[in-house]
Design a protein around this nucleic acid. Structure first.
Lengths: 259, 259
DNA sequence: AAGTGGTCTAGACCACTCG
DNA sequence: GAGTGGTCTAGACCACTTA
């Protein structure tokens, strides 16, 4: 039951403790690769209960400076290098040159990249996707769900949706590897010339499920990006729904000052 | 001390509960403006301890669908994602029409908008800003720092930096109100025709100072956006550094599929 | 098997909000 | 003052990692 000092402090004890630990990391007292003291050790050192240390460590994790694994402990992270996503990604000449946007960008920043195909097949279109594709909700679409890795850690999940009448004629879209230039190149091969891409972004905190899929600490920020691929006929032939670890990406867009 | 069922479940009870509540909101069972049942009521309803409900509500808060205040409770937010920022903002015709981007967009979405000028005057250019402006770090620039409100709550801070040699000839830039169309219209009045704007975005968690300035809960996500305004001569005549409450904005960009 | 983090309990005191 | 969320305790069982 305990003494129960209660919530009356100006700044909660667990925040004080979290700040102290974060400061030690920033100051270099705890170096990258080193382990943060275990929770039971911190309980002794600070003279508080386990629950309080637990909350403090949640805060420390939220700082993104530490990587915690279950039976092991918390390790100070190496500086996560950040990648750059740019408007240049979707140039037709890149696709024709056979570059896949993600791999090209990753290698440019000196990181290893990998993609896992998690799912590929028919699916009933979720409401928002159907709306963007201009079809009825629940209609069947081709869905391709991938998990992207960077330096061995997952950083992004992406699901592509293509209307069935478009996808059915393009066998490569069902394959593990859609070939050079990715699925956008295949869509253009089959007469769907793109006019523009429209991306919408929103940042928020990861849900528990998302955090575990991207190996994030709960409470870590993510960026939810949805992209419409619009053809010259004005049809949206693909919608890509992606979720990214916010600390792994910087986004960059060029906006022409047209009249 | 309790039965202590322990951590052996596939999906933790608090996550299950959080998901149930979130679903109820998304499904419209709990409508915007309504209160989520109090924690003690949830304790009874779900037959778990207060600590478990507490963790569940932390998850629900992370979804961004709910607004929690201390002695009051949790209210379902009006419009979870709110405003729309688009590439259309920087059309010359809008400036010529005298619209300021922020006010126009806010009113369009049916919200009240207000701007406070926090600072306007000379400043030594911070390193990153100087680099973007193509000048020496520490050189004097004109800085204008504003705080933007939406429905009475602060949602964004923005600081504009203009090289001194550009700013010194434009008295409106020093005024409280730079006039119709904003400072971009004034820059164009004085012969600086814009070719494009380049925006870079990064999402992260708010620092304590930022959280208090934007009246956010500590640990809330923010979006850090920096925009370069590039003239047709290729010069960056303004850099705007803004920090936004992530849950108040959805960003949208159009990317032409040029070769 | 020992040590670590993850979940849960039952109860306490406190600060805030509102009538 | 009644009700609400915020902090804290002391202890329990479990799952994961490492040796």
């Amino acid at each position: 039951m305990g003494t129960a000092v209660g919530g009356g402090r100006a700044v909660p004890r667990y925040v004080q403790i979290a700040d102290e630990i974060v400061q030690q990391i920033r100051a270099g007292l705890l170096k990258p690769g080193e382990m943060v003291p275990s929770e039971s050790e911190l309980v002794e050192r600070y003279g508080v209960s386990g629950g309080t240390i637990r909350k403090a460590m949640v805060e420390v994790r939220a700082s993104g400076l530490v990587d915690t694994r279950h039976g092991k402990g918390s390790m100070v992270k190496d500086r996560p290098p950040v990648r750059l996503r740019s408007s240049e990604r979707f140039r037709r000449s890149h696709r024709r040159g056979g570059k896949a946007a993600y791999l090209a960008e990753s290698e440019q920043s000196g990181a290893t990249a990998k993609v896992n195909l998690l799912y590929s097949g028919a699916l009933d279109a979720p409401e928002e996707i159907a709306e963007r594709l201009g079809i009825e909700a629940g209609t069947q679409v081709l869905a391709r769900r991938r998990l992207y890795f960077r330096n061995g850690t997952p950083v992004e999940t992406a699901t592509s949706y293509v209307p069935w009448d478009v996808a059915k004629d393009i066998p490569e879209l069902f394959a593990e590897n859609p070939g050079p230039g990715g699925i956008y190149a295949r869509l253009e091969d089959h007469g769907h010339e793109f006019a523009e891409f429209v991306e919408t972004l929103q940042a928020r905190l990861a849900t528990k499920a998302e955090a575990s899929e991207l190996a994030l600490n709960p409470g870590a920020p993510v960026v939810h990006l949805i992209r419409n691929a619009v053809t010259e006929e004005g049809r949206v032939v693909e919608v890509c729904d992606t979720l990214m670890a916010a600390d792994q990406f910087v986004f960059s867009y060029r906006i022409p000052a047209t009249d």
